[in-house]
Design a protein around this nucleic acid. Structure first.
Lengths: 150, 150
DNA sequence: CATAAGGCAACTATTTTACTAGGGTATGGT
DNA sequence: ACCATACCCTAGTAAAATAGTTGCCTTATG
């Protein structure tokens, strides 16, 4: 049930972009440096987010990445779905699945459906804006909080 | 964020045991046959569940596995924690973690905490009894529902 | 004492994860 | 023009996790 490091790094990069939303593109070295992750790795994740229309890029010197929409309009669900492939705990309850979705009647299915609903609630209702706001607040109060986590 | 097949098979085996609770031990071949999984594989899972005190065994002919407590007293959380190792979506919000738990202040942490709380709510509040009851009900109404899922 | 059943360890194949390497392309400043 | 900065893209790879299989041992029942 673990979230991949892809998702953790990618999500945090998006929050970083949200904090800086409106002040021009942010470069990969900047984003990578903030989290202590290699540029090459983070770039892959950002490319997925670009393919999914969540971030946009500006090439050349002074270029970088920026969000395509105001962070308040961006759900965590959308970001994680791009990074993780799907946020489903089992394939047969994912929105994309069409094979098992109606056919499967296994004994654990009621649990899986309930669990997935609760998860989707959180992921859909939480916006990147909220996380960015919380983080800015934390930085203001905190004694030099670091954005590095295992 | 996927649940392992370990968890899916193991959980379904426990539900099977719940359906038959009180009528003596159920043999491995019976349990394995029901789900179309190999005996060798399912045995590993049941051994974990035994180590965790969820099932008990009777050796020798006419032996098998049975739940150690009434299914109404058994939460899904307990079963999945044994099978999955932990039900935490990220290490730093797991109950077992002591290193990052207070130190970590990363920007995504508020989300992870909220998500984990919702997940724990479902897993702790759902009993194996409920799932067993649902399944029995489904079998009564359904047109030969199969308990096999990918 | 044969047969049915659980106990256990070790091995293996596959897939996923988490990266790294290296070359290509576009842009801005001097 | 040219060079530094920065995104674009593909491929490769090492390690870990996952999903099993095999084989042998021990324990009880009839």
């Amino acid at each position: 049930m673990k979230l991949s490091t892809r998702s953790r790094y990618g999500l945090k990069a998006v929050i970083d972009l949200a904090v800086r939303y409106g002040s021009g593109p942010v470069s990969l070295p900047t984003l990578a440096g903030e989290q202590g992750v290699s540029e090459g790795y983070l770039e892959q994740l950002l490319r997925e987010l670009k393919k999914g229309g969540v971030v946009d890029t500006v090439r050349g010197a002074q270029g970088g990445y920026e969000l395509t929409c105001p962070p308040v309009e961006l759900s965590v669900q959308r970001v994680l779905t791009l990074l993780e492939g799907s946020t489903a705990v089992v394939d047969c309850v994912s929105a994309e699945d069409h094979a098992c979705n109606s056919a499967c009647t296994c004994s654990a299915r009621p649990l899986f459906l309930k669990l997935q609903n609760r998860i989707n609630d959180v992921l859909e209702q939480t916006t990147i804006q909220e996380l960015a706001d919380d983080y800015v607040e934390q930085l203001k109060n905190g004694k030099g909080a670091r954005n590095v986590c295992r």
